[in-house]
Design a protein around this nucleic acid. Sequence first.
DNA 1: CTTCGTCAAGAGCAGTGCTCTCTGTTTTGT
DNA 2: ACAAAACAGAGAGCACTGCTCTTGACGAAG
Lengths: 231, 231
Amino acid sequence: MAASSIRARVRAEMIDEIKVVARRHLATDGANLSLRAVARDMGMVSSAIYRYFPSRDDLLTALIIEAYDALGAAVEAADAGPDRLDLRGRWHAACRAARDWALTHPAEYALLYGSPVPGYAAPDDTIGPAQRPPVTLVGILRDGLAAGRLSPPPADGLPGELRADLAEIADAYFPGVPEALLARGMAGWTQLFGLISFELFGRINRALPHRDAYFDHQTALMADLIGLPRD
Amino acid sequence: MAASSIRARVRAEMIDEIKVVARRHLATDGANLSLRAVARDMGMVSSAIYRYFPSRDDLLTALIIEAYDALGAAVEAADAGPDRLDLRGRWHAACRAARDWALTHPAEYALLYGSPVPGYAAPDDTIGPAQRPPVTLVGILRDGLAAGRLSPPPADGLPGELRADLAEIADAYFPGVPEALLARGMAGWTQLFGLISFELFGRINRALPHRDAYFDHQTALMADLIGLPRD
DNA sequence: CTTCGTCAAGAGCAGTGCTCTCTGTTTTGT
DNA sequence: ACAAAACAGAGAGCACTGCTCTTGACGAAG
């Protein structure tokens, strides 16, 4: 058993090293990760990698899950910083953390939120980690509502079918959050994703050198839309 | 000269057919376009393609430019439908047109707004067509401002440096549009892009079957943020 | 009628993911 | 303790990719 675990430990270390090298390749060479190049860097032959990952897609999936978790952890840690009642402070901290992580890990961000690879379908293991950032954001709204520092927006503009969809999501992840507020929270999350993607994928105007200020202003606009108090 | 132009015409038709076949491959097989497969479909050998396009990236660039123009034309046509003073009608029409185009041309949309290919840098020819949708959207705000149906938002929250950046963009594309309003317009454009990307790239909640209603509600929220009158 | 530019084909290079077979080592069951 | 089974890595090979270079044929221009 102890002898078995030494083999298992070597194997686990091998898997880790493959992921580290693969992540390095991802950062330098971009999204088209080459198994052979990873193997070359490790002094192995390409077919040996298949002892540890059944296919290239499985290696990518492992990297994706870890990236989701890293992003989620960064956002959660930032949200945990300010006072619980400082809703705007938490909002900005969480948004900035997501952007900072994306800017320091552009290739991994592209892996998560870029165009999906045609043949590749993200397995179910990814959906849990993927939801950590939006759950954190809407959590800020939930806390604000509970503390009475946030009034739910009018729900009159919501069609019934959409309201039912949103209620289902709220039941699963955010019990007690009214549908209209949830919709606004999702709008904030969509905007955050759009802002980061525009900046990272280079579609943003070149004539916008002060990107930090632009980002902060746009996230503040969304905080206004959601109704976070200024205090 | 006439004989020369017959040769040139055949050449132009050849280029067109390559692009048509390539677009078909793009739609079925996804983003990794294979030159050899295109050549095979045309009954040619792969090296013959290089008579017409110096590289695969150049072929992709041609497709990208045409896709930008198609999307831009769709958005502009939709915007031209409603009465000029029906700002909200124009806004929704333009947003829906962008989404419809993306849903019917997912691979081309991914080419435009997905993760950039590592080695590939979009040439300058693309930035003109790429700006047609946002120019159209902000044009709605400009018209509303000129007609007095839209009041510019307060500019007190804008840092000076950001204000200068926005003023430069406004001078180049939207003369007369105040900085704070331009920022809101860009927020709307970012949100539109984020909404479409989330839906198309599958990151949207599976538990949201009524996507049309969701999309309309989210774009209406942005119209509220911008200050488009309800009437 | 010859010359020259264009076109398509073919071979070939370096690279890719992946499979299969072979050898050597390590762990496991008796 | 020893044989059996599992595992790790190497190597060859398949089908595919983008791209280059050379060769031969054809049509337009002088």
